[in-house]
Simulated assay, not measured.
Amino acid sequence: MSLLTVIQDAMVLCGQSQPSSVVSNTDPTVLKFLAFAQIEAEETGSEFNWRNLNVAMSLTGDGTTTLFALPSDFERILQGQALWSTKYPSIPLQGPISSQELLALKALPVMPVRPVWRLIGGQLEIWPALSAAEVVNGEYRSFNPIVSGDGNTRKARWSNDADYTLFPEVILKLGVIWRWKQSKGLDYAEDFRSYSLERDKKAGHEAGGRIVRMTNTFSLGSDQWPGVITVISP
């Protein structure tokens, strides 16, 4: 399937004429269906953990850098996803910790041997700095739910009729249908029910539960420490 076939099917099911094109079309009705497809791609792409939206990430230390720029399509790191260092392959790095927790750690006269991490602005901070050539691997969620027809270019918006979504496209079609009927003041309850059931079923097949929180709890008052303590001489 593609954007074109999705919109063609949706418009026929909504009692409209089947268009021969979508993105380049100037018909207001077709453009409205296109707008609903955009909304559906953004909302469904972000709300569930679709595996095709997970992207591998790798950071290499140089002994001094602590702030690493996030990828341009970074949306979030999924809850439960860890960062793994080649220097400590059996234990994930502690994080994400809050800004206050990191500031408190930096104020102490000791530092953890195994780094901790947090997200700040458009960067990922790992502290203390990774050793030279130390590699940290992980995954992040991309906010680009659409891909070009050749499968090579991920994007945030539809730009070609051959584009398709990185989540099951039946959800896109059902989502466009109920949204159009709602906009026309028509009865869309059964369409919305079918859409919701299909979306939840497909998300469940991918273990795509909704995101609840982003930050792990970390306490300086705990009697456990995420690594070996090194005392720094004055």
Score class of each variant (00 low, 15 high):
residue 38 Q to R: 08
residue 53 L to H: 03
residue 35 A to V: 03
residue 205 H to W: 15
residue 23 V to T: 05
residue 16 Q to A: 10
residue 219 S to V: 07
residue 122 G to E: 10
residue 74 F to V: 05
residue 199 R to S: 14
residue 40 E to F: 04
residue 52 N to M: 06
residue 192 F to R: 15
residue 180 W to E: 01
residue 78 L to K: 04
residue 131 S to E: 14
residue 51 R to D: 07
residue 112 P to T: 14
residue 21 S to I: 07
residue 9 D to E: 09
residue 175 G to N: 12
residue 204 G to M: 09
residue 28 P to D: 12
residue 161 D to I: 04
residue 62 D to G: 09
residue 44 T to V: 12
residue 44 T to D: 03
residue 181 K to A: 05
residue 88 Y to E: 04
residue 4 L to W: 04
residue 22 V to C: 00
residue 222 S to M: 06
residue 171 I to H: 00
residue 28 P to K: 09
residue 26 T to Y: 13
residue 18 Q to S: 09
residue 89 P to S: 09
residue 149 G to D: 02
residue 42 E to W: 14
residue 51 R to K: 13
residue 123 Q to L: 01
residue 78 L to S: 00
residue 147 V to D: 02
residue 75 E to L: 15
residue 199 R to Q: 15
residue 70 L to H: 11
residue 40 E to M: 05
residue 52 N to D: 06
residue 222 S to C: 12
residue 83 L to W: 10
residue 166 L to F: 08
residue 5 T to E: 14
residue 218 F to N: 02
residue 222 S to L: 15
residue 220 L to T: 01
residue 212 V to L: 05
residue 10 A to P: 11
residue 226 P to M: 01
residue 27 D to L: 06
residue 195 Y to T: 09
residue 125 E to W: 02
residue 53 L to V: 04
residue 227 G to T: 12
residue 218 F to K: 03
residue 228 V to M: 07
residue 27 D to V: 11
residue 160 N to W: 02
residue 184 K to I: 10
residue 222 S to Y: 11
residue 34 L to H: 12
residue 39 I to W: 15
residue 66 T to V: 13
residue 165 T to Q: 08
residue 145 P to R: 01
residue 86 T to M: 03
residue 197 L to Y: 01
residue 178 W to I: 03
residue 74 F to Q: 07
residue 91 I to D: 04
residue 179 R to K: 12
residue 84 W to S: 09
residue 141 R to T: 10
residue 15 G to Y: 02
residue 65 T to S: 05
residue 45 G to Y: 13
residue 230 T to I: 14
residue 140 Y to V: 00
residue 30 V to P: 01
residue 82 A to F: 08
residue 72 S to W: 09
residue 49 N to F: 07
residue 50 W to N: 07
residue 73 D to G: 00
residue 112 P to S: 05
residue 197 L to V: 15
residue 30 V to Y: 04
residue 16 Q to P: 02
residue 209 G to Q: 13
residue 47 E to K: 04
residue 187 D to S: 09
residue 20 S to L: 02
residue 180 W to L: 02
residue 144 N to A: 12
residue 106 K to F: 01
residue 158 W to L: 04
residue 113 V to W: 06
residue 136 V to A: 04
residue 74 F to S: 04
residue 180 W to I: 02
residue 147 V to Y: 06
residue 55 V to T: 15
residue 38 Q to T: 15
residue 49 N to R: 15
residue 146 I to H: 11
residue 21 S to Q: 14
residue 157 R to K: 08
residue 137 N to L: 12
residue 231 V to H: 10
residue 133 A to E: 13
residue 105 L to A: 01
residue 129 A to V: 00
residue 213 R to T: 13
residue 231 V to E: 14
residue 175 G to C: 14
residue 131 S to W: 09
residue 227 G to K: 06
residue 15 G to F: 04
residue 85 S to C: 03
residue 113 V to H: 01
residue 8 Q to L: 05
residue 54 N to R: 13
residue 39 I to L: 15
residue 165 T to I: 08
residue 48 F to I: 00
residue 2 S to D: 09
residue 234 P to E: 11
residue 138 G to Q: 13
residue 193 R to E: 13
residue 63 G to S: 07
residue 136 V to F: 05
residue 126 I to W: 06
residue 12 V to A: 14
residue 17 S to T: 11
residue 129 A to R: 02
residue 167 F to K: 00
residue 88 Y to H: 10
residue 233 S to D: 11
residue 57 M to K: 09
residue 86 T to G: 03
residue 90 S to Q: 12
residue 165 T to R: 10
residue 201 K to F: 12
residue 39 I to S: 14
residue 115 P to K: 08
residue 154 R to V: 14
residue 120 I to G: 05
residue 221 G to R: 06
